[in-house]
Amino acid sequence: MKVAALSLAGVPLENPAEYAAALAALLKQLQTGLAVLPAHTSFLLCAAQEQLVDAGDFAASFRAFMQKARAWNEVYLQMHCRLARENKLYLVPGTTIVEEGGRFFLAACLIDPGGRIIGWQRQTHLSREERSFGLSRGEELPLFDVEGMKAGLILGTDARHPEVGRILALQGAGLVIHCGAIATGPELAAQPAGIWAQVQQNQFWAVEAQLKGSMGGRTFGGRCAVLGPCEITPGQTGYLDRDAEGRPFAAAELREADRRRIKTDYPLLELLRPEAYRGRLPELYGEV
């Protein structure tokens, strides 16, 4: 299966028709079975099309978006379901805000090639800032079938919490889909501590979409990538492909036979020692 992660750099956001046409052109060029958009895609589109943004205040803009999200999601989901259907691919259109019972969650959906939403994932760990927005944590990590492969979603800050990848891997995930947004600055150097590290300690594939762009005075600059265990990637880097200047996507073919081989030769998960964790995990965990 060929997969792609898109950063949205250079994609026009202000006009829905232009956005859809630009994305469709990119997807046609890539000819992938799965495409992933970055975190905050919904927020970004809403802000651009509904003039939400307070240019100097990301937090204020985000809070405004939370209040608009319920109505906006109809537009956002319809637009991306159509994109998936017309391009006959699985699509994860980045993250949005969903509201349930007065609680707000960061969440992403998986849309199948028929344009149907086949599942949702809520972000399970929140940054200090996200907690300050009043967001709630998801408490489930389901797997979805993507062309015969079990896939899980890792959203935003979840990438930095290895429990998420481990739970998905021990349930049998062969592929992880990540929607991320990393602010520029020293934090960028730590990007491999996220999805790259989760891939290496769980031996699944990952499609990592990172947002490139600015909003509310904050600039995002992580790199999109398609990742696999080091041993089955060029130069043993763990990357099958990464985005680059003027190339706002990473795309690669996932060869499942290669992954099965490395899992046989070096069965990392079978070298786990659950008896040494008993009485410690999850017992030691406390609330933040």
Partner: peptide
């Protein structure tokens, strides 16, 4: 700035998954 904990999530999955792995091993 980003570290969080979700004990409800860990309790829901980790004991069962580690136990299943241990049985398999």
């Amino acid at each position: 700035p980003w570290r969080d904990s979700n004990p409800a999530l860990y309790r829901r999955y980790l004991p069962r998954l580690y136990c299943q792995l241990e049985e398999r091993l």
